[in-house]
């Protein structure tokens, strides 16, 4: 399972996706402000990462519903739980590594177990804080959160989907882990977007194989699919924006209707998107070949976000090159 050498794409490049003009964490913070305008129960909490999580507009607009607890993530989750028992909808914001690991037991025992209506707003997912190095990467969070009963896990792929996710998370009764990024990301959706928790979005039709991404890797899968047309391969792309509860039907359809399923996640390949898809396919008895792309049981190292995505084989060209290798 250790990293084999990642092959490089030898064909022509394709046009990159257009980039959003706003950082994803800023977009998420603005979406939350919108939700809070019509819902006076929404609170926001942070732990000395106010600006980094994009919550400055919220703190300015609703100072009476905002609290910065200082550098104390575990207590922030406890305070959020307490607020939720009193009918508030607290949104607890910090980096993904801290939300899922520093405050892990508070999230399990104080939020998930009593099924409290807390929204965990976890930014800098995967290697988004690339140069921060291993301590600041969140490559295990989905695996951890997926094991907590009552927890829903959502990961938007772009700004428009972030709006949908934020609205759905707030409307959903119960704990939600919202996996967000940092800087500007690619634009995946334009115009109307139908969104439902638990229902994957088909972002590209295809009938040879299926690429499944979540968050940042949705755009990378789209790029890979575009590259693969150069080799005469038609790839379906699914946006698995809900990691839990996962869309069994979309996975089953992909496994039945195409000849290979490839997952790509900015996360360890253990227990995240790839793990969840493998579980579904195995239990349904679907023998379609499955390949999981992601960080392969190592620490990702230091580097810029894009450099690390390429290094670990989850950027578009590397995904396409690996697909060609799998098909050989």
């Amino acid at each position: 399972m250790k990293s084999a050498k990642i092959p490089q794409w030898t064909g022509d490049p394709v046009q990159p996706l257009p980039m959003a003009d706003v950082a994803s964490r800023v977009a998420a913070g603005l979406c939350l402000v919108e939700e809070a305008r019509s819902n006076p129960d929404i609170w926001a909490l942070t732990s000395d990462v106010l600006n980094s999580t994009g919550l400055v507009p919220f703190a300015k607009a609703f100072p009476e519903r905002f609290l910065n607890v200082g550098i104390a993530e575990q207590s922030m989750m406890g305070i959020a739980a307490g607020l939720a028992t009193c009918g508030k909808i607290p949104v607890a914001a910090t980096f993904g590594f801290l939300a899922s690991m520093r405050a892990c037991e508070q999230v399990r025992s104080d939020i998930a177990y009593p099924n409290l209506n807390v929204k965990i707003y976890a930014t800098h997912a995967g290697v988004a804080l690339g140069k921060g190095g291993t301590t600041h990467h969140a490559l295990e969070d989905v695996a951890i959160m997926r094991t907590f009963a009552n927890m829903t896990i959502l990961e938007p792929a772009d700004v428009l989907e972030t709006q949908k996710v934020m609205a759905a998370a707030v409307a959903h009764q119960g704990p939600v882990y919202i996996r967000l990024r940092r800087g500007p990301g690619p634009v995946i959706y334009q115009g109307e977007l139908a969104y439902q928790i638990g229902k994957a979005n088909l972002v590209r039709e295809g009938n040879d194989l299926t690429l499944i991404g979540c968050g940042r890797t949705v755009g990378e899968c789209l790029l890979a699919a575009a590259l693969l047309t150069q080799r005469g391969i038609s790839a379906r792309v699914l946006d698995m924006h809900t990691l839990k509860p996962i869309d069994d039907e979309a996975i089953a359809a992909a496994a039945r209707e195409t000849r290979m399923v490839i997952t790509a996640e900015d996360h360890t390949i253990i227990g995240g998107l790839g793990g969840a898809v493998a579980e579904v396919m195995a239990e349904l008895g679907l023998a379609t070949p499955l390949r999981r792309l992601g960080v392969r049981d190592i620490y990702a190292g230091i580097g810029g976000e894009d450099e690390l995505l390429a290094k670990h084989g989850i950027a578009g060209p590397q995904i396409a090159a690996q697909v060609m290798q799998f098909l050989e």
Partner: peptide
């Protein structure tokens, strides 16, 4: 790196980065 790694930096006695 932005946060020190004891297995990469000679003389660094502990990898840190997450406070506390």
């Amino acid at each position: 790196g932005m946060h020190p790694d004891m297995n990469k930096i000679p003389g660094c006695d502990m990898s840190t980065g997450s406070l506390g």
